[in-house]
């Protein structure tokens, strides 16, 4: 069974959709913003991701084929099996994405997707160059061992990413209610890209928003708290190399500083982003707590349902 590389096939569609969104924004004078260097950086990150996938794709694929050799199970290639694989892989995506925000080692790879202060279709293409180094491919191991062929797993993973393209837009406000209830949408994903304290660490979904509702990470978009996009500490550079590698360098510097314990060194890699041995930085939890100290009326509103 041969599965197409859907992300590559989708490239012409991506370009056409970006042009369409841009024309929409310029004619309607609403629905988002574009800026030259920001968009250029996003597009270069996307192109770099394609190159890295071509160059380093064999690592993950080799690992998957190794597992495929181990498992006695083979579920075949029926449409039903592909559909089940798609849903289970979306659950896999949810957890990898959640780790991507809660484990600094994984965040180092994912951070660049959040590094734009804009939110338009080019932001969707701002993809990681260093995903292989997070070793998060192990989260797919159960799927392969259950008998889903590696090519199928990569195919549905590609479909997942292609789905997520269109939700990176401000041109669509809300989808129909039933759709918002089940699917990841522009509104839900705007929340995920928000740097507002309320929106940190929420809406990790790829395709189905139900995972966030099941695992308690869902936060709706609040009219009075429009998402501000970007990082808690926004970058002061458009250089794609700096965007791609800055957090890895940060981990390296933190881990190799003098005068801290071995435990602290390990924590700099595996604790949530913002953890520090001397408490000089804030994690998202601390940012939320500090926000509530300044703005107590937000207590027990969405995104602040804390102990």
């Amino acid at each position: 069974m041969n599965y197409p590389d859907v992300t590559q096939i989708a490239v012409p569609f991506f370009i056409a959709a970006i042009v369409f969104e841009l024309v929409w924004i310029l004619t309607k004078k609403r629905g988002g913003r574009y800026e030259t260097r920001d968009a250029l950086t996003s597009l270069l990150m996307g192109a770099g991701n394609v190159v890295v996938t071509i160059v380093l794709g064999f690592v993950a694929y080799g690992f998957f084929m190794f597992l495929w050799g181990l498992t006695p199970l083979d579920l075949g290639n029926s449409v039903l099996i592909v559909a089940i694989c798609f849903v289970l892989d979306d659950l896999r995506y949810y957890w990898v994405h959640r780790y991507g925000h809660r484990i600094r080692w994984v965040w180092a790879s994912h951070v660049n997707h959040h590094s734009s202060q804009h939110y338009n279709l080019t932001t969707a293409l701002r993809q990681t160059w260093t995903g292989t180094f997070t070793l998060m491919m192990v989260v797919r191991a159960p799927l392969i061992l259950l008998g889903f062929h590696p090519a199928m797993v990569l195919f549905v993973g590609g479909l997942n990413l292609v789905y997520q393209f269109w939700i990176h837009t401000e041109a669509i406000d809300k989808m129909p209610r039933w759709f918002e209830a089940v699917m990841n949408t522009p509104s839900h994903h705007r929340v995920h890209h928000g740097r507002n304290p309320r929106y940190l660490d929420s809406n990790y979904a790829g395709v189905f928003i139900i995972w966030d509702k099941m695992f308690g990470t869902f936060v709706p978009e609040i009219e009075s708290d429009r998402p501000e996009y970007g990082l808690v500490h926004n970058l002061g550079t458009f250089n794609p190399l700096r965007v791609a590698f800055h957090e890895w360098l940060g981990i390296f510097r933190d881990m190799t500083q003098s005068g801290i314990s071995l435990r602290d060194r390990v924590m700099y890699a595996i604790a949530p982003p913002g953890w520090s041995h001397d408490g000089t930085r804030d994690t998202s939890d601390q940012i939320k707590i500090k926000h509530l100290e300044r703005t107590p009326e937000d207590r027990d509103t969405p995104g602040f349902n804390m102990r």
């Binding site: 574009y34 800026e35 250029l40």
Partner: peptide, 18 residues
């Protein structure tokens, strides 16, 4: 597609004053 698409989009954005 990738190089041409990126270049064209960047050029258009710049010429639009963005």
């Amino acid at each position: 597609l990738v190089v041409g698409g990126i270049g064209a989009i960047a050029l258009v954005l710049h010429m639009l004053g963005l």
